[in-house]
Measured scan of single mutants.
Amino acid sequence: KELVLVLYDYQEKSPREVTVKKGDILTLLNSTNKDAWKVEVDDRQGFIPAAYLKKL
């Protein structure tokens, strides 16, 4: 599985998104959309803007 590093805090703005903190390391589920990547956070799945993430 692929991991990503969170570069900036992000507060979810819709039910399809998830809230993350800078420095979190998350499982990347889908990065086919260049604008928003799907990740898993504490058994929740949701989207975060790709600009907030860096592949490890």
Score class of each variant (00 low, 15 high):
Asp35Trp: 15
Leu3Phe: 14
Leu29Cys: 06
Lys55Leu: 13
Lys34Phe: 10
Leu28Arg: 00
Lys22Asp: 01
Glu17Cys: 09
Asp42Pro: 05
Tyr52Ser: 05
Pro49Leu: 06
Lys13Ser: 10
Leu28Ala: 02
Leu53Gly: 04
Lys21Gly: 03
Thr32Glu: 14
Leu53Pro: 03
Gln11Thr: 14
Leu29Trp: 04
Val41Gln: 07
Asp43Ile: 05
Lys21Asp: 02
Leu26Thr: 01
Trp37Ile: 02
Glu12Lys: 14
Val6Asn: 00
Glu2Ile: 14
Val39Asn: 00
Ala51Glu: 13
Gln45His: 09
Val20Cys: 07
Val18Gln: 03
Asp24Leu: 08
Thr32Trp: 09
Gln11Val: 14
Ile48Gly: 02
Gln45Asp: 07
Ile25Asp: 00
Ser31Glu: 10
Thr19Phe: 05
Leu5Ala: 04
Arg44Met: 07
Leu3Asn: 05
Leu53Cys: 12
Glu17Leu: 05
Leu29Arg: 03
Lys38Met: 15
Lys1Asp: 08
Lys38Gln: 14
Asp9Arg: 02
Val41Lys: 14
Asp43Val: 06
Arg16Tyr: 14
Val6Cys: 07
Leu5Lys: 05
Asp9Lys: 02
Trp37Tyr: 05
Val18Ile: 15
Gln45Tyr: 08
Phe47Lys: 01
Asp24Lys: 06
Lys55Val: 12
Lys54Met: 14
Val41Ile: 13
Ile48Gln: 02
Leu56Arg: 00
Ala51Ser: 14
Gly46Glu: 09
Val20Pro: 01
Ala50Thr: 09
Asn33Gly: 10
Asp42Asn: 14
Leu53Val: 12
Tyr8Thr: 08
Val20Ser: 03
Val6Arg: 00
Phe47Gln: 04
Thr32Ile: 10
Ile25Pro: 01
Leu3Met: 11
Lys55Trp: 06
Tyr8Cys: 15
Ser31Arg: 06
Val20Trp: 10
Gln11Ala: 12
Ala50Gly: 07
Tyr8Gly: 07
Glu40Trp: 09
Val4Asn: 01
Val6Ala: 06
Arg16Ile: 13
Lys55Gly: 03
Ser31Asn: 07
Pro49Gln: 04
Val18Asp: 01
Tyr10Ala: 01
Arg44Gln: 07
Pro15Gly: 11
Asn30Val: 08
Glu40Ser: 10
Tyr52Gln: 03
Leu28Cys: 09
Glu2Tyr: 11
Ala50Trp: 04
Arg16Cys: 15
Lys38Ser: 08
Thr27Ile: 15
Ala50Ser: 14
Glu12Gln: 14
Pro15Ala: 11
Ser14Ile: 06
Asp35Pro: 02
Ile25Leu: 06
Lys38His: 13
Leu5Tyr: 09
Thr19Pro: 03
Leu7Ile: 09
Lys22Met: 08
Asp42Lys: 13
Glu40Lys: 11
Val6Asp: 00
Gln45Trp: 12
Trp37Asn: 01
Ser14Arg: 08
Leu56Met: 09
Ala36Thr: 13
Asp43Asn: 14
Thr19Lys: 06
Asp35Val: 11
Val39Glu: 01
Glu17Ile: 05
Ala50Leu: 05
Asp43Ala: 10
Leu7Phe: 02
Thr19Ile: 05
Asp35Tyr: 15
Ile25Lys: 03
Thr32Leu: 10
Val6Thr: 02
Gln11Met: 13
Glu12Val: 10
Gly23Trp: 04
Lys1Thr: 11
Glu12Leu: 14
Val4Gly: 03
Lys34Ser: 12
Val6Ile: 03
Ala50Cys: 11
Leu26Trp: 05
Ala36Asp: 09
Leu26Gln: 01
Lys21Tyr: 09
Lys1Gly: 09
Lys1Phe: 12
Val4His: 00
Glu2Ser: 11
Thr27Gln: 10
Asp24Ile: 05
Leu56Gln: 08
Ser14Asp: 12
Asn30Leu: 08
Pro49Asp: 05
Lys38Arg: 12
Gln11His: 14
Lys34Val: 12
Gly23Phe: 04
Leu26Lys: 00
Gly46Thr: 09
Ile25Gly: 02
Ile48Asp: 03
Val20Asn: 00
Gln45Gly: 04
Lys38Leu: 15
Tyr52Leu: 12
Leu29His: 03
Asp42Ser: 11
Ser14Leu: 08
